[in-house]
Amino acid sequence: MGEWSLVIFTILMQTAIGAYLWATLMKSRKQERDFNKNNIAILALTAVAMIVSLMHLGTPSGALRALLNVKSSWLSREILFSGAFFGLVFITVLGDKLKLNGSQKVLLGWVTSVVGLLSVFSMSKLYMSSIIPAWNSRTTMLDFFVTTIVLGGIMLLVTSLKELEGEVAKLSIVMAAAVLIHAAVFPSFVAGLGAGTAAAQTSAMKLAQAYGGMLILRWVLVLGGVGLVILSQYKKQQESTYIYLALAALVLGQIAGRYIFFAVGVARGVGVI
């Protein structure tokens, strides 16, 4: 498994984009929220993600050339939208210094969110356009968007719990719903691989055997994580303790999930139809 850089890149980008999207939604409900801490954390995560992604390349010095085939390559589009997202977050952080007015900030918020979502969409299509059946599935897109919603949500909770007063319950319900939909679809995804081509069957076998224990742990952590977020609303005294525990569970669970995603990918090829 030599894809650690991609595990980290995809997880960090999706977390940052999700946190920005959630912040924009929450701001639309109450203008005076500014989520400064969240914005700076997003900028840092996006910067780290892009630097780590270079480690995947055999020739990192040529990274900018990855933008040359936007007309047909989802990888080019992923880099384009991820880079644009970074730039727009940077402008968001500088918002006050640049003397942006209220409506300009709202516009910036939505434009950045849409660019972020396009980045997650491109990232999904990149893997869906491969010759690897375990990735070449709509479940990849579901996985990536669920990660965006869930890790983005927990990041906003951690950075801005006070500013979110009164909204945490709603946020936690959306996060739980996203995880439950993913969990509900996952068994049929594995069954589909099991009934597929030889490469797909090899992936299904890896999911059931070599990575079976890790897969169970992953779902326990992710389901437990959203459970802790919901529970935090019933234990207001220790709300932040529960939120931090949820952060640990969700981050570990999603990293395990993404590790498994890369580890079980088997390409079709000569003799491996």
Binding site: H56, G58, T59, L126, S130, A267, G269
Partner: peptide, 27 residues
């Protein structure tokens, strides 16, 4: 000269034709 060694072509080919050359960091 243009190749950056991202290996996406290797994930794209159903015949395993593109090959990664570790020493050059390119395909």
């Amino acid at each position: 000269e243009k190749c950056i060694g991202c290996k996406y072509c290797i994930w794209s080919c159903p015949y395993g034709a593109p090959q990664y050359k570790e020493d050059q960091g390119k395909v």
